[in-house]
Computed example of a mutant assay.
Amino acid sequence: MITQLNHTDVSTAKSILHVQKPAYDIEAKRIQFDGIPALQDTAETIQKSKECFLGYTDSTSGRLAGVLAYDRTAKGTDITRLVVHPDFFRGGIASALLAHLLQLKESGPMITVSTGAKNAPAVRLYEKHHFTRTGDAEVAPGFFITHLQKALKSV
């Protein structure tokens, strides 16, 4: 089940962190870069975030299994994090969260996202959902991120 999360609640913030930390640890190894800013998050920084958070709760265990966070911008929506706890990898959770976001009326005309250029599973996920690569940027010596975007149909 996908719901809007109240990340300002300390218990919810800790649950988000419990999903995010192991997911980003694996990504950091995959892309050979441990400078992912979200690895430095604490429950307090999540509580203070201005992002909107969606959560996927596993119906069997009742655990928060995936999180998508986004910011609304003048041009639409910027996905700021999309993580799935490793216990739930390959279960379609990231796709479900992304599809949910794409259906929200307040998403605006354009959705953008950036991910590590070497994070092939993430790039494939966005391309599967018809995001288009708009370029790469070197954000640290020898480390590149890939920018992607998707124009949404007007309603």
Score class of each variant (00 low, 15 high):
Ala74Trp: 03
Ala74Arg: 11
Lys75Trp: 02
Lys75Asp: 15
Lys75Glu: 15
Lys75Thr: 11
Gly76Asp: 12
Gly76Met: 12
Asp78Leu: 14
Asp78Met: 13
Asp78Ala: 12
Ile79His: 06
Ile79Leu: 05
Ile79Tyr: 00
Ile79Asn: 01
Thr80Phe: 02
Thr80Asn: 05
Thr80His: 01
Arg81Cys: 03
Arg81His: 02
Leu82Phe: 01
Val83Gln: 14
Val83His: 08
Val83Leu: 11
Val84Ile: 11
Val84Tyr: 08
Val84Arg: 05
Val84His: 06
His85Tyr: 07
His85Arg: 04
His85Asp: 13
His85Leu: 08
Pro86Arg: 09
Pro86Phe: 03
Pro86Ser: 02
Asp87Asn: 12
Asp87Gln: 08
Asp87Leu: 05
Phe88Glu: 03
Phe88Ala: 04
Phe89Cys: 01
Phe89Gln: 00
Arg90Thr: 06
Arg90Lys: 12
Arg90Ser: 14
Gly91Tyr: 11
Gly92Gln: 09
Gly92Trp: 03
Gly92Arg: 07
Gly92His: 07
Ile93Gln: 11
Ile93Ala: 08
Ile93Cys: 10
Ala94Arg: 09
Ala94Leu: 03
Ser95Asn: 11
Ala96Pro: 01
Ala96Cys: 05
Ala96Ile: 00
Leu97Trp: 03
Leu98Ser: 05
Leu98Gln: 08
Ala99Met: 09
Ala99Asn: 12
His100Leu: 04
Leu101Thr: 03
Leu102His: 10
Leu102Val: 06
Gln103Gly: 13
Gln103Ala: 11
Leu104Gln: 15
Leu104Arg: 14
Leu104Met: 13
Leu104Phe: 00
Glu106Val: 08
Glu106Gly: 00
Glu106Trp: 05
Ser107Ala: 15
Ser107Gly: 04
Gly108Ala: 05
Gly108Cys: 01
Gly108Pro: 06
Pro109Asp: 07
Pro109Met: 08
Pro109Tyr: 06
Pro109His: 08
Met110Glu: 14
Met110Thr: 13
Ile111Glu: 08
Ile111Pro: 00
Ile111Leu: 07
Ile111Lys: 01
Ile111Val: 14
Ile111Arg: 02
Thr112Arg: 13
Val113Gly: 00
Thr115Cys: 07
Thr115Ser: 07
Thr115Ile: 10
Gly116Gln: 10
Ala117Tyr: 14
Ala117Met: 10
Ala117His: 13
Lys118Ile: 00
Lys118Asp: 11
Asn119His: 15
Asn119Glu: 03
Asn119Asp: 13
Ala120Arg: 11
Ala120Gln: 14
Pro121Glu: 10
Ala122Asp: 02
Val123Glu: 07
Arg124Lys: 14
Arg124Gly: 00
Leu125Lys: 04
Tyr126Ala: 04
Tyr126Ile: 11
Glu127Leu: 11
Lys128Tyr: 13
